[in-house]
């Protein structure tokens, strides 16, 4: 049975500082699947993720979740950023960080209650971090930091979970635990979209893959898209004309933006 698309990306071009990093992407992501976004460094993986999360406005096209703008469905998603994106000397305990996941748009003035603390504790237990609840976050190892981030995201009880390279700089034990949690989510019918760089493990853990190298190379079930032709197109360098055009766009003094994409 064909499942419904949960992410719909149409003709999406986006980037930073006028430099497009992804070019005319078209793909859909199915509900209830474990989907990976794969590509070499600089292939636009992070830009794509930022578009999906509404952190940057595309130059052309759109990325919709459940057929709507992401701002309308934020209560149904959660995000696990790269652990390098924050300052781990920040004055906060593990518990404080997981409680951050209980923030809800539209009720931010309400203080957290008993229910929120129970939920945070539950997810700390699930990620095997409850014994460290009162530890300062700076004292955690790389794998433990990632588990705290996962617990924080899951405390939002999302239907769709985004992760940015969750296995980078993580010890084997933590990686196994994280993967186990992610598989449980899929079993419960949730959907996962993950930026990933390791092809070998990707083949084993993912249902679907989106192969990216500035433009879309292929998207679909791993068994279909993982072939020599696609992989060499993803990781090879046959894009000299496209990158020349991107340079042109970057240097051009005009505004490279579809006038229909007004929101910033």
């Amino acid at each position: 049975m064909e499942s419904k698309p949960i992410v719909d990306v149409h003709n999406l071009t986006a980037g930073y500082r006028r430099r497009p990093a992804i070019w005319n992407l078209d793909f859909q992501i199915q509900e209830g699947k474990f989907t990976g976004i794969l590509g070499p460094n600089g292939s636009g993986k992070s830009t794509l993720l930022k578009c999906l999360l509404g952190q940057i406005t595309p130059y052309t096209g759109y990325a919709h979740l459940w057929g709507q703008n992401v701002d309308k469905v934020r209560h149904r998603i959660a995000y696990v950023p790269q652990k390098e994106s924050v300052d781990w000397n920040f004055p906060a305990t593990v518990m404080d960080v997981v409680l951050m996941g209980r923030y809800r748009p539209g009720r931010f003035w309400q203080r957290l209650g008993k229910k929120d603390k129970e939920a945070a504790l539950y997810w700390l237990e699930q990620t095997g971090m409850n014994h460290l609840a009162n530890r300062q976050i700076g004292q955690l190892s790389g794998g433990q930091r990632q588990r705290v981030f996962l617990a924080r995201a899951l405390a939002r009880e999302p239907s769709l979970l985004f992760l940015d390279e969750p296995f980078a700089g993580v010890d084997a034990g933590s990686a196994e635990r994280i993967l186990h949690m992610l598989k449980l989510l899929i079993e419960q019918g949730k959907s996962i979209v993950m930026v990933h760089h390791d092809l070998v493990s990707a083949g084993k853990i993912l249902d679907n893959a989106i192969l990216l190298n500035t433009r879309l190379v292929a998207s679909g079930p791993v068994s279909e898209v993982f072939n020599h032709e696609n992989l060499s197109a993803t990781y090879g360098s046959d894009l000299s004309i496209l990158s020349d055009v991107i340079d042109l766009v970057t240097r051009n003094p005009g505004r490279f933006k579809d006038p229909r994409n007004q929101k910033s």
Partner: peptide, 15 residues
């Protein structure tokens, strides 16, 4: 505290 610690996560949560 969330806003100061992790703006990316705060933004994705709809702050």
């Amino acid at each position: 505290w969330l806003f100061c610690f992790d703006p990316e996560f705060a933004q994705s949560s709809g702050m």
